[in-house]
Design a binder for these strands. Structure first.
Lengths: 222, 222
DNA sequence: CAGAATTTTACGGAAATCCATAATCTATAA
DNA sequence: TTATAGATTATGGATTTCCGTAAAATTCTG
């Protein structure tokens, strides 16, 4: 079982719940941070003291603070911790249920478990901790398990995301083309833009561009 | 101090935190529901048994369940409980920080306190409970206190919301007009629609309709 | 290198939206 | 009743988006 755990979670009420879980599992050496930056510093300090954490439980979304922070969300924190300490086990514990993001956490940050905050998440969190403490298996909440199976034949690339972000920020298609041209983004013709949008609308089953932006916003893609 | 409390909160980890607060305040008679419908039924049952609750602490957003539910979110629950039992005290406890929605809770559902889930929300929750238990004062988390001051000279009415919702669902302006006509919504001409949209875009400083929908989605208005 | 396949770009007409102006309707007060 | 202000609707033209077709460019393949 894990000996030393760090929790990154901003909501204090939620923190209490997680700590209860750890106590139930007889894990007594744990610390928590309400800020990503702080959590990262603690991880680094622990390594330098040669007493590294062996488990990170991190939320994904954090309240944006008045003070400027290096790391603004859980995804980034997880990514940086993984780079710093490749052997640490990481559990993402979040209400985020969009397969796109969950998939990316497993693929890019190589997390060990994804537990969906929900009606029975405390049990799942316990299960996840137990499982990954004794093996290298991955744990994922059943409600979102299919997220990993879903392989979309259609890949959304960075340019697509860029276009969608510009659109949702009120930029017209022509303006986006101008921006792309002046910043040397590869396909930058009116036709290419229209074709991309058409594909996106097709893929997301959107009736029009407003609908498309609305959908991808809901999905957390932008 | 309150004698009998009901909590409506779906996330179990969060529930633990709230229950800890109540215990700290020596409130022992409390129940919680993970579903809005269930919470409402409990409130009604308590009234019929002549042992009504004197405090409701409710989250705003709930996981949508597979089973169809009458009441789908905290706003509706609060509204219905307020109608059923006008003298009950109500605390909304949520991460929602959009002034539009908070304002509406105080004005339409006459809630007694709004506590923002955050870094120090447990203290605030205690303060809120203490305050409204001994007086009829309102409590609101300092982070969002200005929400109530903000008086917008421009009123967004139900038709505006309806239009924005239809737009974000992929309905074209012409289609919305048809829908309005066949359901006898008052202003239902192309011009009226365009004028409304123009005012909304002006008010929200949106460049175009995509931008507008994007903004109001971010603000939680739709 | 030649040819094929794919991607990018160009073009044009249809449709939708945007925007300003004017006409019509409605309610209220003199 | 009539005048007037405000709201609703109508109209038309400019702009933008939509969508299909086709040319041009690039990449892939043998």
């Amino acid at each position: 079982m894990f000996k030393k755990v760090i929790i990154a979670e901003d909501l204090d009420a939620m923190n209490l719940g997680i700590q209860q879980v750890l106590k139930d599992l007889n894990i007594i050496d744990f610390q928590h941070s309400k800020f990503c930056d702080e959590a990262f510093l603690k991880v680094r300090a622990a390594i330098q003291k040669n007493e590294p954490y062996d488990l990170l439980i991190s939320d994904l979304s954090f309240k944006t603070d008045h003070r400027k922070s290096e790391i603004s969300n859980g995804d980034e924190l997880i990514q940086k911790v993984r780079e710093l300490q490749p052997n640490i086990k990481i559990i993402a514990y979040s209400v985020e249920d969009k397969s796109y993001r969950i998939k990316s956490l497993f693929e890019n940050a190589d997390i060990d478990a994804f537990v969906l905050k929900g009606l029975n998440s405390i049990d799942e969190l316990k299960k996840a901790i137990n499982l990954i403490s004794i093996s290298d298996q991955k744990f994922i909440s059943p409600e979102v398990a299919m997220a990993l199976q879903e392989k979309s034949n259609f890949e959304i690339d960075d340019v697509d995301i860029k276009i969608l972000k510009y659109l949702s920020a009120g930029t017209s298609q022509d303006e986006i083309i101008e921006i792309f041209k002046s910043s040397n983004v590869k396909p930058n013709s009116k036709s290419a833009m229209e074709k991309r949008l058409s594909k996106l609308k097709d893929f997301f089953k959107a009736n029009n561009t407003i609908h498309l932006v609305s959908i991808v916003k809901d999905m957390g893609i932008i």
